[in-house]
Nucleic acid binder design. Structure first.
Lengths: 113, 113
DNA sequence: GCTTTGTGACTATTATAATAATCAAAAGGT
DNA sequence: ACCTTTTGATTATTATAATAGTCACAAAGC
């Protein structure tokens, strides 16, 4: 069956995703893990891991990032991702708050964390 | 209806995705685009754009990256993503070619988190 | 004030991602 | 050479992401 909806992606997007997939594969091999091992750790099937390592654009971003973290790929180019990401998050929140149309939903309590 | 399959994500993954979503939102507002405008340009629905800007882990990585490119978010921290990504791709291919396919004696790899 | 536009938050439906299962072939070890 | 493990690739099925549509509310603009 031919897919009914076909979407196009820019070259930058395709290459960035391909790069991330290859970094995951490289990290996995550097840690001497098999596809089954890494897939098991991540709680996904081997088929999905294969798609991600090949840069499949349709796969969940959460799976890409989770796998990257599992094999030590630095998402934002630093050695300690979590602290740096948190720092960035604060900066972005400040910037968004200053913007005219920013919503920053007044008194909404976070439900997520 | 409760979801049948629920998946857990690490904090790093959640924060990284949230950050990327907020960077997209920030880039969109800096370019004074509405949600409908950006969604239309990207060929997606407004609902999906909202999920991405809120850091929904289940959304396609291709959509995240495509939106990031559309609003000028630099995926790999450089001004000229495509050339740099291509360069990285070549180096990763070289590294992968040198690595043995796997190592049999299944050494347990320690987790980072 | 009023009107318009942008956003948040749902719904039901449809398209599809993720899965488990399989097979063949390549790679590694003995 | 052999045998084992890992990988590539494909299937059918199931779970779910993406969609269009709607409603209410919040900001701007008049």
């Amino acid at each position: 069956m031919e897919p009914i909806r076909k979407r196009t992606y820019s070259r930058v997007t395709r290459e960035a995703t391909e790069l991330l997939g290859k970094l995951i594969r490289l990290g996995r091999k550097e840690r001497k893990m098999t596809e089954n091992e890494l897939a098991g750790r991540a709680g996904i099937s081997r088929a999905t891991l294969q798609k991600i390592e090949h840069g499949d654009l349709k796969c969940e971003i959460g799976l890409f990032f989770e796998l990257a973290a599992l094999v030590g790929v630095k998402l934002f180019g630093t050695d300690d991702p979590s602290s740096t990401v948190s720092m960035h998050l604060g900066r972005i929140d400040d910037k968004l708050a200053l913007l005219p149309q920013s919503v920053r939903t007044s008194v909404k309590v976070d439900d997520d964390f």
